[in-house]
Amino acid sequence: MEIKILFTILISTIFINNYVLSRILGLCPYLGVSKKLDSAIGMGLAVIFVMTIASFFTFIIYKFVLIPFHIEYLRTIAFIIVIASLVQLVEMVIEKISPALYQALGIFLPLITTNCAVLGVAVLNIDSGFITQEFGLLNSVVQGFGAGVGFTLALLLMAGIRERLEIAMVPENLKGLPITFITAGLMAMAFLGFSGMKIF
């Protein structure tokens, strides 16, 4: 049974409720880093990594610190501090362990603190009611991972399209952000096709 639930969470965060194209979260990196395919891959991997770890730690802190002390209303402040310090920690650890990976992800890690999708997934894990469930921790980690994968998928698709848009004949005033938004709109429309999909 548990596998079925995890699979449902994964599919729904990647396709049905894609964080960028359906919930409209994390637009700054989505627009900022989608100019080139290889930097998009780096950013995507860094986001998957941070989102998974952040889901794990924010869940634990909410369950074992905020609830026992009845300070749930401090959620926002606690989560943003946890995420910021986590990103910093991950950056230092990666730099020590794997310089090659640091080369690839390094410049993207500091940017992730202000990526609203990371705080968004932490808050949504709590709002989805995972906290009272038996396998809540596992569920929220899977949701974080799925959210990262969904973000990466949208980012990679966008980067691929934008690389081709560079050589396309776009009207002068539409160049840059406007055409990117219209492209994103078309992609969001395509992703709308997943909504209402029954998995089991």
Binding site: N173, G185, L192
Partner: peptide
Amino acid sequence: LMILAPGAFFTLGLLLWGMNV
């Protein structure tokens, strides 16, 4: 469609286009 996500992207894209013009 206009109150779902695609409508948001289209509206902002077109408004930015207007600003540029």
